[in-house]
């Protein structure tokens, strides 16, 4: 297991290096000079040149890559071209919203999807199963921004249980902050929970028809015991894959929901930075997201090995 983890860790580091090279190269080829963009169309060439110098844009590609990477390793992501403040600060401000929101949404997803998926699988073909399948179909089909607006209408405007948007900050108290994230988290979780419940159901149905479930029943286990002791852990393997993908998506892909609830999250930051040619912010946030995705995949790999002993020995 240790060997397996170390090997996974090694491939994680290699992925990170490759990703940083790719991101850096992409940003290099994007048209548009940040200096001229910042100074506007009437700027004098010598002012632009001076600003380019100040921003370090005149150094060689190699020097810029090294200074970017070494800055990143020491927590210094440089200075934003448009905000004129350290990127680390800007990103950190956004991350304290986006990361908890993603974790919150994923927790809701798992809490809903697992029991619903198991319930539907154990009662395959029953009314419960049919209604679960119908409801999850709807959950996948409903656009989540529309669902978000509906929730704002019902819970914020009519019932006044929640505020319609914005974020008071974690200084306002843990529960106040959590409350502000609740509606966005539900809106994000709805389609994800629907997908995960369906995956859980079909994966569990597959495992329940396996030979070793029959063996377990022949030993004297009841249907329920066979499900909990033998089927569930085997059914988790495809489910873990989906959870990994969902977390990455929730972290970076919440931009529409962030807009609906007026949350200053990472998604909006990237969107603004791209439209303003604030390449250093784009670079840093994309690298951060890549880092998150790779780390999540690493954790999913570890979880696979925990679930399935075959992976440990094949390593």
């Amino acid at each position: 297991m240790l060997r397996y983890s170390l090997k996974r860790l090694g491939s994680l580091l290699i992925s990170l290096i490759v990703a940083s090279l790719v991101i850096f190269a992409c940003i290099e080829v994007v048209p548009g000079d940040p200096a001229s963009f910042m100074l506007g169309i009437n700027a004098q060439p010598d002012t632009i040149a001076a600003l380019r110098d100040e921003l370090g844009l005149n150094a060689s590609i190699y020097e810029r890559y090294v200074s970017w990477i070494s800055g990143m390793l020491t927590g210094d992501l440089g200075t934003s071209y448009t905000y004129r403040s350290p990127v680390t600060e800007i990103v950190a401000e956004r991350l304290v919203i986006s990361l908890p929101l993603a974790i919150y949404a994923l927790t809701l997803t798992v809490l809903v999807a697992f029991p619903v998926g198991v319930l539907a699988a154990t009662r395959q073909g029953s009314k419960t199963d049919i209604s679960v399948m119908g409801a999850t179909q709807l959950g996948v089909a409903i656009p989540n921004f529309w669902f978000a607006m509906l929730m704002v209408l019902v819970f914020a405007i009519n019932l006044r249980w929640f505020s319609a948007g914005g974020f008071p900050g974690w200084d306002a108290g843990f529960f106040a902050a959590l409350k502000a994230l609740t509606l966005p988290a539900i809106a994000l979780a709805l389609p994800q929970a629907s997908i995960l419940a369906r995956v859980m159901r079909s994966s569990l149905l597959d495992t329940l028809s396996e030979d070793y479930i029959r063996t377990a029943r022949a030993k004297g286990l009841s249907k329920r015991q066979a499900l909990w002791r033998h089927a569930l852990r085997n059914a988790l393997i495809p489910v873990l894959t989906i959870i990994g993908l969902q977390f990455s998506f929730l972290l970076a892909g919440a931009i529409i929901i962030e807009n609906v609830f007026f949350l200053p999250g990472l998604g909006r930051l990237v969107f603004q930075a791209i439209s303003q040619r604030d390449l250093i912010v784009v670079e840093s946030v994309v690298m951060l997201l890549v880092f998150a995705v790779i780390v999540v995949n690493f954790l999913v790999d570890l979880a696979y090995a925990w679930v399935d002993p075959r992976l440990r020995s094949h390593a």
Partner: peptide, 24 residues
């Protein structure tokens, strides 16, 4: 459930799939 396994045991055709792969 009490009889199965205690009073009568069963062996199956396909040993490759008759065991749970994730348990010792």
């Amino acid at each position: 459930c009490q009889m199965r396994g205690r009073d009568l045991g069963m062996v199956f055709q396909e040993p490759m799939t008759a065991l749970n792969p994730v348990q010792t």
